[in-house]
Design a binder for these strands. Structure first.
Lengths: 214, 214
DNA sequence: TCAACAAGGATTTTCGAAAATTCTGGAATT
DNA sequence: AATTCCAGAATTTTCGAAAATCCTTGTTGA
């Protein structure tokens, strides 16, 4: 892996997980020290992230972490619902039993992690992401999967700080995931779409209550 | 405008318009000579284009123009229909009369250009793009507009060579655009969506017949 | 007091060369 | 004849410094 790729992965993770405040400038000298590399690989990573809308750039004024706002969150949420319900519908239509097996596996792995008290949050997030990706993986559209990844990263920036602010959950998230998986495995597309939509809308509610009002 | 931005604009245009063959390597020495700049701004542009899926990159093996294939075209087409019908629906729901005026203006400008025999193809393409963007501009979703731009560029790569191969058009494209604009201005969302969809499916038919079979 | 300006420092952007890796073609070996 | 190996060339990747631009701060002049 080249340094530019490492820079991309690290920066993306640090931005999505909120280790840089939104709108804070990303100065090359600072990043160079933080990640231990020169300007060139960092600039390449920042350009990629700019195309993904995680950072913004202004000519001769460098890069910033892109802003967060309630309206941008609502936008990303609506786009996600559009993309994911369609991708899920297509997956249910086209997926084979290997795909079904991968959902069962992803759900199992996710539940093992939520049930654990030692709480490796990184691992939990990775498995949560993997489960949702597995649902859509058979949709057959690279574009939809690409958009899914973009929007997942964009909304993850809101989810993490909001969950910390919102305190203990009343939801049984394992049960929600299980219900979605059941509907998918039963090839009941309308039900699966409705459950997925509700799942996201419920999360969105939690996020809204953890965010400053618009 | 910085050199990196110029490089991005030029490279994107040259790729979309097919001046580089798909899958051909984009060697830095060649690009440096072609565009008259050093490696740094070119690499930054290539990284942005990689995030947009117009070029592919492989570690230590540089960049290539991304491949074209019938299946990728069908994928992009379906994604476009999903994104654009939804964005159009939202635009009709939310647009004000300034938005209506911008559609009238864009349609007028487009027709002036199609009626011209001196045929500045670049200008025609720009106005065609501007018209389709104007239709969606009031949707209120930055994400949908972003996806629209991506998919427009992706499908434009197929449209241009196919039109040259397909020979003279039997369609009255001005009339199709006019009908879409009329439905939009009448705020008839279902009709506008149907007309837009038909418009793209007809273009897709032309493109398919100009492409080698899958 | 205030606006315009300028000098100096900070920062981004770009270049040219060095380092690292891949590719190519031919010699050596089986 | 086919395969492996290696040296040299080609190419990508990275660095460090130079160039260009922006920002700050203090000064001047009205």
């Amino acid at each position: 892996m080249t340094l530019a790729e490492k820079a991309y992965v690290s920066l993306r993770k640090d931005i999505v997980e909120g280790r840089f405040a939104p709108e804070s400038p990303l100065r090359l000298a600072d990043l160079s020290e933080r990640y231990g590399m020169g300007f060139s690989p960092l600039r390449e990573a920042l350009n990629r992230l700019q195309a993904e809308r995680l950072v913004t750039a202004e000519s001769l004024r460098g890069f910033r972490v892109s802003a967060r706002s309630p309206s941008e969150f609502e936008d990303a949420l609506q786009a996600r619902l559009l993309i994911e319900t369609e991708a899920l519908r297509l997956s249910i239509l086209k997926g084979d039993d290997t795909w079904e097996a991968s959902i069962v596996a992803a759900l199992y792995a996710l539940r093992r992690q939520t049930g654990r008290s030692d709480g490796d949050v990184d691992e939990l997030k990775a498995r949560h992401h993997a489960f949702h990706r597995a649902l859509l993986a058979a949709c057959g559209s690279d574009w939809l999967l690409d958009f899914f990844e973009r929007l997942y990263a964009a909304t993850e920036r809101y989810r993490i700080p909001a969950l910390l602010a919102a305190g203990p959950q009343k939801r049984d998230i394992d049960a929600e995931h299980g219900a979605i998986a059941d509907a998918v495995l039963a090839r009941d597309a309308p039900l699966a779409e409705r459950l997925l939509r509700d799942h996201y809308l419920r999360t969105a509610g939690t996020i809204r209550s953890g965010m400053a009002p618009a």
